[in-house]
Simulated scan of single mutants.
Amino acid sequence: MRTADALAQQLDGLVHLDTQRAPTGVDLTVDTVFRTTGHGQLDFGGGEFQAAPRERIEPVLDDPEDDYGWWGLEKGAYMIRYNEALHLDGGEQAVVAPLERTLLAGAHHGAFVVEDGRDPLETLLVVSRMGCRLKENGRVSRLVVLD
């Protein structure tokens, strides 16, 4: 596995590397949250694939003096877009998995493999019945590049 400093060279949009640095990779942060508004479509060959439609949700400041707002997410499925964009060299693979703190806060996403660079880098976040408050730039996932 790559060190966080080596991996940082393959990422654009890092918010604060010193905070995002982890022993096994780099933590990814949330830039944008979208509410899914309908169903997507999957087929065998991919020619009829359609992503689920979505609408952007704006974060809300707790106090007008705050620099960053919060998304108050109720039970359901959301798309999150990370601040970070990933650049991979040929043949590299990366894995993105939820942080334990994300799970403990009442949300999760499936771990997924990235085999090519991604900009934007996104995933489906599922929020449990208790809901979850998510702050702008909050760390929710860990990215690891496999050697």
Rank of each mutant, 00 (worst) to 15 (best):
Q50L: 15
F34C: 02
E136P: 07
D27L: 05
R81D: 12
A8C: 09
R129G: 12
A85R: 14
C132Y: 08
R133H: 13
S141W: 10
N83T: 13
G138W: 04
G131C: 03
G117S: 03
G138L: 02
P98S: 05
T36S: 11
E136M: 02
P120H: 01
T3E: 03
V113I: 14
V113R: 09
T29N: 00
E100D: 11
M79S: 05
L121P: 09
Y82P: 01
P120Q: 05
P59V: 07
A107Q: 07
A107V: 00
L7M: 06
L125H: 02
L42P: 04
W70P: 07
I80W: 07
L104F: 05
H87W: 12
V144P: 06
G38A: 08
L7D: 06
D18P: 13
Y68C: 12
Q20P: 07
D43Q: 04
G106F: 04
D119Y: 03
L11G: 09
E122W: 02
T29R: 03
T29Y: 10
W70C: 01
H39N: 10
L7E: 04
E58K: 03
A97G: 07
L125E: 08
L28D: 00
I57P: 07
F44M: 13
L88N: 04
E84Q: 14
L42Q: 13
D66S: 14
D66Q: 11
A105P: 04
L124K: 02
L121T: 00
E58L: 13
R118Y: 08
P98V: 09
H39R: 12
V33L: 04
D116W: 12
N137M: 10
E84G: 02
D66G: 09
G69R: 07
V140T: 14
H39Y: 12
L11E: 09
L7H: 00
R101L: 14
D62F: 02
L88E: 02
D89A: 14
T32L: 11
D147Q: 12
L143P: 10
F44N: 06
S128L: 11
V140F: 08
A97F: 07
R54C: 14
C132S: 05
L61T: 08
Y78D: 07
G110E: 13
F34E: 02
P23H: 04
R142S: 06
L11A: 00
V140L: 09
L99K: 12
L73V: 06
R56I: 15
R118S: 07
H87I: 12
V15P: 00
V15K: 05
P59W: 03
A97K: 04
G117M: 01
A107C: 11
T102V: 00
L28W: 01
G46R: 08
G38K: 10
V127Y: 01
G45M: 15
F112T: 04
A8K: 11
H39L: 12
V113T: 15
H108A: 14
I57G: 06
A105V: 02
A22N: 05
R101V: 13
L42W: 14
E48I: 08
R56G: 05
H39P: 08
C132Q: 06
W70K: 08
Q20K: 03
G90Y: 06
L86G: 07
R142Q: 14
D18C: 10
F34Y: 15
A77H: 05
R142C: 05
V126H: 02
D62G: 12
G138V: 07
V127P: 10
G69C: 12
G106T: 09
P64S: 10
H87P: 05
V126W: 04
T123S: 03
